[in-house]
Design a protein around this nucleic acid. Structure first.
Lengths: 225, 225
DNA sequence: AATCATTTGATAGTATTACTTTAATTTGTA
DNA sequence: TACAAATTAAAGTAATACTATCAAATGATT
C-alpha cells in the first residue's frame, strides 16, 4: 500500500505550499527533473514553465525565486531523511545500532522511496549533493535560518548527537563529529565523481562508508583526548 | 623587506593574467573587497567597475565572467596556501610535525601575509569559506578540472597525504582523511558563524582545531581498522 | 443549476544583468 | 616621435528575473 505523506516544511521555503495542489506537485516534480538535468545556474522559471506546459506567472505564485525553490527542495530532502532515519531506527533498542544504522543510511546512496512517489529521490539527492550548499551559502543565510529553514537538518543532527552521547557521554565534540560525517560524506561522493585524485574510492564504491564508519568507531571506542 | 611573489595559476582562470598589470591588480583587490561586502550573488562587473572607477569592458578583457573571476580567487587562494605550507614546514625534519603544522595552518584563521600586500587575505579567506564551493559546484566542473583549475589544491592534498603515509603507511584512506579535514574545517567555521546549533564551538574558538587534531591523532596512532 | 471565490493561463511589460561591439583616447616603449 | 597595445566611453543586444493585468477555468456552496 502506498501512503502519501505530506512533510511539514518551514513556510519561508515557499509562498504557497506546493504539496497542496496538482500544479504545485507538478512544479516540484518537473523542477527536480530539470535542475538535475541542466544544473541550478541554467535553470529558469521560464524553462520550467515550458517543460511543464504552464506559465512563469503560475510558478511565481508558489515560489518567489529559484533560490527559494532550491531551499524548498533542500528542506524537503532533510525532512525526508529525518523521517527515514526515524522509521528505520525505531525498532532498534540500543543507541549504538541506532547511530550506526542512521549513519549508514545517511552515507549510502538511497533507493527510491515509494512513500513519496511523486518525488524522484535519486535525482533529488543528486541535486542536494551537487547544488545543495548553494541554498545555504548566501548573504541571506542568517535570515532564512531564523525563519526555521534548517530545522529538519538540525533535528537530525541532534538526534544522532543524543545517541552518540549515550555511548560516549564525555565526548567533547559530538555535534562537530556528526556534521563532519554528514557533510564529509556528501563532499567525498562529489569528489569521487568529479575530482577522483582527491579521494581513495576509485575502486570500491563503499569505501566512503568504510572510511566514515571507521572514523566513528575510533572516536567512540578509543579514548585519547 | 617585502617581496612580491607572483603565483602561477591555471590559464583557464583568466583571459589575461591580472597579476601582470596595474588594472589587473586593481580588479583583484576591488573584487575581493566588493565580493566580501555584498556576496557573490549581488556582485556584478558593473558595480565593480564603478567601485574601481573603470569600465565593464576593461574588466571583461581579464575575465570572461564573474564565475571565472571567483575561480581565479579560488585558485589564487589555494596556490597561496600551498606556498605558505611549503615555507612553514621546510625547516621541519619529521613527517609528523610537518603534517601537524600544515593542518594547524589550514584550520586556523590566518594573519595577513605581507608578501602579497595587494591582497587582503582575511577577506579572501572569508570569500572562499562562504562562496568558494560555488566555483566548483557547477555543471562545468569536469571541464575546468581538465583545464587544471584545481592543481594547487590537489598538490596540497598530495603533499599532506605523503607525510601521513610516512607515519602510517598502511592507512587505507589517506586522501579522504586529508580532504575531510580541510573541507570539514571550512564547514565548521561556517556553521560556527551562522548555524551555531550545529557545532560545539560556541565558547572556545579553537575547538575546531582541537577536534580535527584529535581526529587525526586517533587515526594516526590508534589502529582498529 | 447558478453563484462566487479561488486558481490558473495568457499576454505584456520593466529593470537588471551579462555580455559584445566599435571607435576614440591614453599609455608604454623602441 | 611614432607605433602598438591597453584602456575608456558609449551604445546596443539578448536573456533573466521578475510584476501586473485581466480573462478563463475550476471548485465549492447554496
Amino acid at each position: 500500500m502506498i501512503v502519501q505523506i505530506k512533510l511539514s516544511l518551514p513556510s519561508c521555503a515557499y509562498l504557497r505550499d506546493p504539496q497542496e495542489t496538482k500544479l504545485g506537485v507538478s512544479i516540484i516534480q518537473n523542477s527536480i527533473e530539470l535542475m538535475d538535468d541542466i544544473g541550478f545556474e541554467a535553470f529558469t522559471f521560464k524553462k520550467l514553465a515550458v517543460k511543464m506546459e504552464s506559465t512563469e506567472a503560475s510558478i511565481y505564485r508558489y515560489f518567489e525565486s529559484k533560490n527559494q525553490l532550491l531551499l524548498f527542495l533542500y528542506a524537503w530532502y532533510w525532512a525526508w531523511v529525518n523521517y527515514r532515519v526515524k522509521t528505520t531506527t525505531q525498532n532498534l533498542t540500543d543507541a549504538e545500532s541506532k547511530l550506526k544504522t542512521a549513519i549508514k543510511l545517511l552515507i549510502s546512496h538511497t533507493e527510491e522511496d515509494e512513500k513519496f512517489q511523486f518525488i524522484n529521490e535519486i535525482k533529488l539527492r543528486q541535486i542536494i549533493e551537487n547544488e545543495g550548499i548553494k541554498s545555504i551559502l548566501t548573504k541571506r543565510i542568517d535570515f532564512i535560518n531564523k525563519a526555521g529553514a534548517f530545522e529538519n537538518y538540525k533535528k537530525l543532527v541532534e538526534t544522532l548527537v543524543q545517541w552518540l552521547l549515550v555511548i560516549r557521554p564525555d565526548y567533547p565534540h559530538p555535534n562537530m563529529l556528526i556534521t563532519t560525517i554528514i557533510e564529509g560524506a556528501r563532499i567525498q561522493h562529489f569528489f569521487a565523481l568529479h575530482l577522483t585524485r582527491l579521494t581513495n574510492n576509485r575502486e570500491e564504491n563503499d569505501s566512503v562508508e568504510h572510511f566514515f564508519l571507521n572514523l566513528l568507531n575510533q572516536v567512540l571506542f578509543l579514548k585519547n583526548d
